[in-house]
């Protein structure tokens, strides 16, 4: 499953109403660590079927970034059943992302 871009309009459907866990990657084009993290997330997305990984560009989606209190990127937020269950800020290695997502 590839990584899809999420906007304000489809956030509820894609993230909050999702049956599986959703890993939201808040990022920006100009952010080096975000660009480093992306290929790691791509790999995980292709390896795992029980988690959906989505990307939110904080420059395009300021409202979402503000609503979820994102003030440092890259910021990974894990949603399960429409609720935030875990959060991680900064570039982390692949093993740590996998641990962050859990089973």
């Amino acid at each position: 499953m590839g990584i899809v871009n999420v906007k304000k309009d489809n956030f509820e459907d894609v993230v909050l109403k999702s049956k599986e866990k959703v890993l939201v990657d808040f990022n920006a084009d100009w952010c080096g660590p975000c660009r480093m993290l992306r290929p790691i997330l791509d790999e995980i997305a292709s390896e795992r079927s029980n988690v959906k990984i989505v990307s939110i560009n904080i420059d395009d989606e300021e409202d979402l970034a503000m609503k979820y209190g994102v003030s440092s990127i890259p910021c990974l937020v894990l949603f399960d059943g429409g609720k935030e269950v875990n959060r991680s800020v900064g570039l982390i290695p692949k093993d740590a992302v996998i641990e962050f997502i859990g089973e």
Binding site: W30, G32, P33, R35, M36, L37, I40, L91, I92, P93
Partner: peptide, 28 residues
């Protein structure tokens, strides 16, 4: 962690010979 080290946090490198204005990410 990942390749590149601290330089990936730099938006624009302005003091490396013959590579003005490259981003830290692109350099790395």
């Amino acid at each position: 962690l990942s390749y590149g080290g601290q330089i990936i946090n730099t938006l624009k490198i302005e003091n490396y010979p013959a590579a003005p204005n490259i981003s830290g990410f692109d350099f790395a």
